[in-house]
Amino acid sequence: MSYVEVSLPRLAIALLFIAIACGVSWRLRLGLGSALVVGAIRAAVQLIAIGYFLVFLFAHERAWLVLTVLIAMLLVAALTSARRLEHGPGLRVLLPYALAAVGGGAAIALLPLFTLIVVPHPWFEARYLVPLSGMMMSSAMNVVAQVFERVFAMARSERAVIEQLLALGASSVQATQSHTRAAVRAALIPTINGLVTVGLVALPGMMTGQILSGTAPGQAVRYQVVIMYQLVAVAAVSGALATRFARRMLFTPREQLRRDPELR
């Protein structure tokens, strides 16, 4: 296992790329110069910090510490998916559901992975648990955010249709079915497209990383196939959970569509 080291001076050369983008921004008067600089600094600081943190974590690998890290990641993912919803309930109502939807989707993918496919020794080996869990959680986070946004926006714009369907004897499931289906489909389609095009245009980041660090391409490919299949399950389960939870927030147990203020 050998790879070309990136020394700090060489890392600094990469700043040139930011400078190029800044130059384009200045030339075309895009007004993105400061955003680029802030973004570049944040990316570097966050990644360097996580790099040091991983070094620390690998050196002090304890079950409780790894689990704490995973829980913190889950919390951030759930918070992110529940934030910035234009319509729908406030964070306080939404967060427990977001946690369950992101956590449920990620767990469906991760439990079989770590018990049957990639079995780490010891079971809490951070080198496997942290990055692989992170990938699944961030995918679940995006799906949950997207489904919540769509379903709550729909409940607002289609309020009269939903209420008329309820009045005709529809259950809350029937009254929202066409829209919740569309929301889960929309969340799944990018993942399915990923399955179809992977390897044809770009090599996935994780596979690229493994190959660069010396893993045999055959093994890197196997990891990648597992990841891609997992992502489909994550999207399906998180999406389905998010629609179910959204419905629970939107309707009373007596199949009444709640008013906006009641949601908050």
Binding site: A160, E163, A167, L168, G169, E255
Partner: peptide
């Protein structure tokens, strides 16, 4: 049960929205 109550007590909203499809599709919804 809400659905049972609502099939016996029909409620037509103000400017009740038409669903996708034909008049027949709409009438047969319930």
């Amino acid at each position: 049960t809400p659905s049972v109550f609502r099939t016996r007590v029909a409620y037509v909203l103000q400017e009740s929205p038409m669903f996708d499809g034909t008049v027949a599709d709409n009438v047969a919804t319930g």
